[in-house]
Amino acid sequence: MRILLEKLLINYPFFFAIILFVMGAFTVLTRSNLFKKLIGINIMEGGIFLFFVAAGNIKGGAVPILVDNPGVTYINPLTSALMLTGIVVSVSVTAFALALIVRIYKIYGTTDARRIAEMRKEVKERCQQS
């Protein structure tokens, strides 16, 4: 138990990454408000980004700008660079999802997934008549 705690303390960024991931996943799966679902996705992705960046970090490591002095440990810049791409993807997905929410709101007049499920039949009938 003690060893586990010590390991957790040393690797605390991973611990927080897991908490963020689970929080996000829980929000996506349980909340019915579409905005909250979207925020949940973002929190979840934030957890993954933290996980990656923490994986590249080395305690006491220097900024990875190569200068001529031997004996310096550099942190791994690759994971941070990868997460730059990940953040771009996440932002574009968020923008797209917001655009979809606007369209849904125009049709249903609500952003609550449960009410939308109730109204779906009505909308279906309305569009079959017209």
């Binding site: 991931f21 996000g24 996943a25 996506v28 579409l34 679902k37 979207l38 996705i41 979840m44 992705e45 993954i48 996980f51 990656f52 994986a55 990940g86 993807v89 997905v93 797209f96 999802a97 979809l100 929410i101 369209r103 849904i104 049709i107 249903y108 939308i116 779906r120 909308v123 279906k124 309305r126 569009c127």
Partner: peptide, 27 residues
Amino acid sequence: HPLSAEAAFRYLILATFGSALILGGIG
């Protein structure tokens, strides 16, 4: 079609959930 936005939104949320899992696995 009036139902397309909602179907697409559900797809987007679940698929992004999947992408986050894939990224985690790659990590």
